[in-house]
């Protein structure tokens, strides 16, 4: 796996690609590159990018200019951005300077939040600068046995949680993502224990938002997973339904069971803004611990529920 520098001839900023008919969370992606040093079996990068190389965009000045123009055009509107959609935000050392420059850009723009999402424990860059309220470091979490089987090369669960704890001690806030959740007859207890373990290490009040999402896939991803794993993978044998957005998901009754049980456990830990990734309004109506209005209120500024629209609905 190599790092390749390439000019990005397109745009760097785009809305997070939520499926039509699903409720989005008003999030924007900044894309400093694509690819990943990790090898998560379920990741969409397996089919999105044929090459295993990491591409970093060389024209970062253009990215910064585009970012500044975008946010200044929105005139103090609270906005959330993330760099961890097409690349792990912290796993690639060559991105450290980009991360620091983005942090610098938003230092005097408290309405702008950037989330740096990772499965690593690489927090040194952010420990070397004073914490900012509008920088959120976030971790995707899964039970350790799933990390062992399906998230090769990533930091262990404990490494992620203790990195999060250290970053919180330095003054930052964090976010957490339980995504993908693998919903089988045996895994619910694993996820409930994961929530217990997480909040035995991380203070709940430091978590600005927490998302959940069941494993979902499109046909191209399934084929890529089969091709990369000698034709079989345990989680592909579970029951899935093809939804109207073309993605295959666990049946709704199973998703509801997991979301409700895990969400109720999370709420026991504290008043954490919890939301579902790429689910529709119909499912939200049967959620026991909250409603989809949280999607317009995820920004830490907490200026009220009506600043944004629910995208994709």
């Amino acid at each position: 796996m190599k790092i390749i520098y390439k000019e990005n001839k397109g745009g760097f900023i785009k809305p997070c690609p939520c499926s039509p008919g699903r409720l989005g969370c008003d999030y924007y992606i900044i894309a400093p590159g694509t690819g990943c040093p990790f090898n998560c079996s379920y990741c969409f990068l397996n089919f999105y990018s044929k090459s295993k190389d990491i591409i970093l965009y060389s024209n970062t000045d253009k990215m910064y200019r585009e970012f500044v123009a975008f946010i200044d055009n929105k005139k103090n509107k609270p906005l959330r951005f993330g760099t961890g959609e097409f690349i792990d935000s912290l796993a690639v050392k060559e991105l450290d300077s980009v991360n620091l420059e983005l942090a610098k850009i938003i230092k005097q723009r408290p309405n702008i939040v950037i989330e740096f999402k990772t499965k690593s424990s690489n927090i040194d860059t952010f420990l070397k600068i004073p914490a900012q309220d509008n920088i959120i470091l976030s971790w995707s979490l899964n039970p350790q046995w799933i990390i062992n089987e399906e998230e090769k090369g990533t930091a262990s669960l404990e490494e992620r949680l203790y990195a999060a704890k250290e970053i919180v001690a330095h003054g930052y806030s964090i976010a957490l993502h339980l995504d993908p959740i693998f919903m089988t007859e045996n895994t619910l207890d694993d996820y409930l224990e994961l929530v217990d373990k997480t909040f035995s290490i991380i203070p709940a009040k430091s978590v600005k938002w927490l998302s959940m999402g069941g494993f979902r896939y499109v046909e191209d991803l399934k084929l890529a997973i089969l091709e990369n794993n000698n034709g079989k993978k345990w989680f592909l044998g579970e029951e899935y339904i093809k939804c109207e957005d073309g993605k295959f998901r666990y049946p709704k009754f199973l998703r509801l069971k997991f979301y409700n049980r895990i969400g109720e456990k999370i709420k026991q830990k504290g008043a954490i803004k919890t939301y579902l990734c790429m689910e529709g309004a119909q499912l939200w109506k049967d959620i026991s611990w909250g409603d989809y209005s949280v999607l317009t209120n995820l920004h830490p500024l907490e200026i009220g529920k009506s600043y944004g629209s629910i995208t994709g609905y």
Partner: peptide
């Protein structure tokens, strides 16, 4: 067949 094979071996 592939899905059943993934589940049951």
């Amino acid at each position: 067949t592939s899905d059943i094979n993934s589940k049951t071996g």
